[in-house]
Amino acid sequence: MDSVFDELYRKYHHDVFQFLFYMVKNKELAEDLVQEVYIRVLKSYERFEGKSSEKTWLFSIARNVAIDSFRKQKGWKQRILEKFDWTTQQVKDEYPVPEEIAIQKEEIQLIYQCLDHCTVDQRLVIVMRYLHELTITETAEALNWTESKVKTTQHRALKILKGHMEDKRRKEGMDIEEVRVER
């Protein structure tokens, strides 16, 4: 096996895979995408100058791969309608919830669903910050954004998640009450 591949696999494979999974919420697709990340990395490895850390560099490539895949999924008609900015669009998916999630407690499942309400940008930040525990600086580096943009995006994402969690809770609460009334 290629020594570069070997090293990358050992150091980052699970991180990159998990990142892609939470971006696209589909294991099979994440498997394909992680391969695409390797292809891009292996083709440009010599060009990696060590300006940013290897980790943020990989995340930035993974991010591009994820975004490209969203773009491919959309038909051209949809893209024309969203011409102004597709990164604010939500990622809609009807993929089955994987077992790892299904066995978690209710709140975790809820928040997993609520991720769908975030835009691509927001989701990028959430996954990098809270699942991979990148610092604000690292996240900014990986996304090629300013730190303040990371902060605002993070703030907004949390607000949206909060809003939808409350919504869901409220609806559920009502469901339970209705059941009680019927009885």
Partner: peptide
């Protein structure tokens, strides 16, 4: 919310590295 996000489970690629490399 932050705590809940942190609790989201790890998702692992179950394939063999050899297989990934082959692809």
């Amino acid at each position: 919310i932050e705590e809940l996000l942190g609790q989201l489970p790890k998702i692992i690629d179950e394939r063999d590295p050899q297989e990934v490399y082959q692809n």
